[in-house]
Design a protein around this nucleic acid. Structure first.
Lengths: 197, 197
DNA sequence: GCTCTATATAGACACTGTCAATATAATGTC
DNA sequence: GACATTATATTGACAGTGTCTATATAGAGC
């Protein structure tokens, strides 16, 4: 029998994660404090340490889950598209962009070196897999070019990341006008694609 | 006569700025606390409020100064080069990149929406002037192209910013191997230039 | 001399992360 | 069953933080 308020929560790790993610979306990473999360989860401020050793570990876990979700989304879109070579690079790029504009605080967290641990092995692993998707598409799309596929992949990912990051800082144009920040975002991806054609 | 420790510091605003900048370079933005800066400046923790109304204002002032310095550097390099059209875009891009790799914490601060005020009029003004430099070069370099100069400017700035930002997160390759992060950075700029040729 | 303003101090408040000591629940072992 | 061990949660403390208040002093204007 589960009591109304058992001493052992049972699923606290998951609840802490969910609460932290909700607070991230609503208040930004600054709103994800150990004490606020614990309070929202209905436990004392000392409870979370049993599941996340410190705030950094909690935020890193959230970041990792976001990269996982992004990779899943990319693979899902790629699979849906089949092996038509040409538009596949756009798919990877626009999936990243869509994610950034849909979840600005989550996206910002992914690149906050002061908040998460960018040397975490699992985090690096999923980032590498995303990077591999880009490289794979480029090695198919531009076989005999001046620069190697890594340069193309780095350039495109950099461009997409830089665009999202600067837009989230209010640069170029306000975010409100379109949820996906599409017009200019699509334009620069088109431009990049055009360069390869 | 200046006493050894006069009540009125006389130049506290400047000292606070300098101390804060030094702490930023050494410890990152997290090390720039009002109390630590006040202590290093030899005043009480309540003194800074007379010169910077809160921590955000202090960090925003520092950010503004960095953009000013970057613009000055860009203009200096452009002037040195003369009106040869072709390599001027590279100059703007590499000046940004050099700044980012030389002063990682300063660069990171420029895009920390939670730490500085990106609606500050003076800040926006100097950012606009940097953006204008890019646009000017593109309007000279690519007169009759498929995309307007803003798209090129946004794309290049995004690419450069994204590359620096991700490298500062440890992405792609370690920062240690070269202070300027040059090889891949030069490659992606070359690639962009090549697209326009 | 005086007043007014700018500037600095000191203390308080409500937060924060993290650690240590303690208490309780759950699990494994006999 | 009883007992020891481990996992989990509570509570309190500590050193920080930004920011607000009340207070004190310096300097400038008259």
């Amino acid at each position: 029998m589960t009591q109304l308020k058992p001493f052992h929560h049972g699923d606290l790790k998951r609840v802490l994660f969910d609460v932290a993610l909700a607070r991230l979306d609503e208040h930004g990473a600054g709103g994800v404090t150990i004490r606020a999360v614990a309070k929202a989860a209905g436990v004392s401020h000392g409870a979370p340490v049993n599941h996340y050793k410190d705030r950094r570990a909690l935020l890193t876990a959230i970041a990792k889950a976001q990269f996982d979700a992004l990779l899943t989304e990319i693979d899902s879109r790629l699979e849906e598209l089949g092996e038509d070579c040409e538009p596949r690079i756009e798919i990877v790029a626009s999936a990243m962009m869509d994610f950034g504009f849909r979840y600005p605080h989550r996206y910002r967290l992914l690149w906050s070196a002061d908040l998460i641990d960018h040397t975490d092995a699992e985090l690096l692993s999923v980032m590498d897999r995303i990077y591999d998707r880009l490289c794979t598409e480029f090695s198919k799309a531009v076989p005999g070019r001046k620069f190697d596929k890594d340069t193309y992949a780095v350039a495109l990912w950099s461009m997409v990341h830089g665009y999202v990051d600067m837009r989230l800082s209010g640069m170029f144009e306000p975010l409100n006008d379109s949820i996906s920040g599409a017009p200019r975002g699509e334009a620069i991806i088109d431009m990049f694609k055009g360069f390869l054609a």
